[in-house]
Design a protein around this nucleic acid. Structure first.
Lengths: 230, 230
DNA sequence: ATCAGCTAAGCTGCATACAGCTATACCGTC
DNA sequence: GACGGTATAGCTGTATGCAGCTTAGCTGAT
């Protein structure tokens, strides 16, 4: 399939791809929390381009449902409703085991090394928590998992649900630092064990388990529903 | 200076949404077979707008991987590789049973009426085959199924895989008219029975079964075996 | 006849100007 | 003071011109 589906294992090339990736990063890394208004002219200045490529990038991520743009008003970052979040998590719970069953990729030493490095950094996170680092680690972990998925459609869906869910559980992560850090460490060490014996299916089931844990944490620490129109 | 607002309450879709939908229709209905070059200027003339909304529409469907646009060259409709097709079908086989398990919608009499109408028209198709009608029936059937899916993420994925697979099995349909017509009739009558007793899960499994049949037909009639002149 | 190099045509990518829509603040009226 | 209509600011939607990239085809030397 085209490289439009699988996200960025390597660096994107064209201008709008860069902007697209950066916008997604800022949204799911909570630099643009729900309710933020994305002004095309302003973003255009930020990126040093005209409104056209910015509009293009926004159009390309519109299918994720993370932003909504209304004529004459503006483009705002959406806060997913509780029901939407449940739907996304239900979907992820179903997708996770497929990682090991639908054309999984072969595990290489590179995978193992990346996982080992992530585990090491996650340990460091226990001593001194850093929100940005926590988010970055999760993102790299997700990239690692995605690189084990051989089925193109599944990999695309895995990314889509990740982007949809990310901003939510990163938000929770900031409210329960030690809890999520310990969860990340144990998830990584389990994955490390699975990678050691080359068992992709195990990785899928580990994901399945920890997605369940993550959803439970969301329900526990969810902020007192401020205003989530939909 | 308020002018009379006598707009019909039904048509409220934006220009680019219309173009987007029409492009997808033309691609998966094989009016734009793989290899077709989509020239922005030409499409703009067709739709009576400038290049801008056309570009916007193309950008919005780019994530499906059905078109690929390269700078200086053009935008062409992609022919999915055999492996991609297999991946999409593997995915659809997994998604189908979820229709009945992930927040299914309640079946209403409207659903039953639509299904009955489709079944009736499919019967008529047996007497006199018409490619356009066959494709349109399948499309309406897909809309019916999608309207039973309550999980937002699943519904979105269901549509995505449909668009990705549609052009393939519509292509096969043109080479095995009576076979696909009979398959459509039996699929519709099975769904009719499931709707009658309000069993959405059954609908999901019926889909699962017929997706399997569809993939088998693709492998049977795929270019390479039957008619290979020169 | 062959091939390197060049030229021109045609496409997308980008910038910019303008039109249209929406929400808000303002102002005159009651 | 309350209210309805209106002007206005700011945003997105659209049209258009130009620049850059790519390819095909032509030309001329070998």
């Amino acid at each position: 399939m085209t490289r439009a589906n699988d996200m960025p294992p390597t660096a994107a090339k064209s201008t709008v791809e860069n902007i697209q990736e950066e916008l997604l990063r800022r949204i799911c890394f909570l630099e643009y929390p729900p309710g933020t208004q994305l002004k095309e002219a302003e973003l255009a200045r930020d990126f040093g381009v005209s409104r056209t490529p910015v509009r293009d990038a926004i159009a390309r991520i519109s299918h994720l449902g993370l932003v909504e743009t209304r004529n004459g008003v503006g483009t705002v970052v959406i806060a997913l409703s509780d029901e939407d979040i449940r739907h996304v998590y239900d979907m992820r719970l179903q997708l996770a085991p497929m990682i090991g069953t639908l054309s999984p990729r072969e595990i290489t030493d590179e995978h193992r090394q990346i996982c080992r490095a992530l585990l090491c950094e996650a340990h460091a996170l226990r001593d001194r928590f850093d929100a940005g680092l926590y988010i970055a680690l999760n993102h790299r972990l997700h990239r690692l998992i995605a690189s084990l998925i051989g089925n193109t459609a599944l990999r695309a869906f895995w990314w889509q649900t990740y982007y949809q869910a990310a901003s939510i559980w990163y938000h929770v992560g900031l409210a329960a630092e030690t809890e999520v850090t310990n969860a990340l460490v144990s998830e990584l060490s389990e994955i490390d064990s699975a990678l050691a014996i080359g068992d992709v299916a195990a990785v899928g089931h580990i994901q399945r388990v920890h997605i369940g844990y993550g959803y439970a944490r969301i329900q526990k620490h969810r902020p007192g529903h401020p205003h989530s129109p939909r």
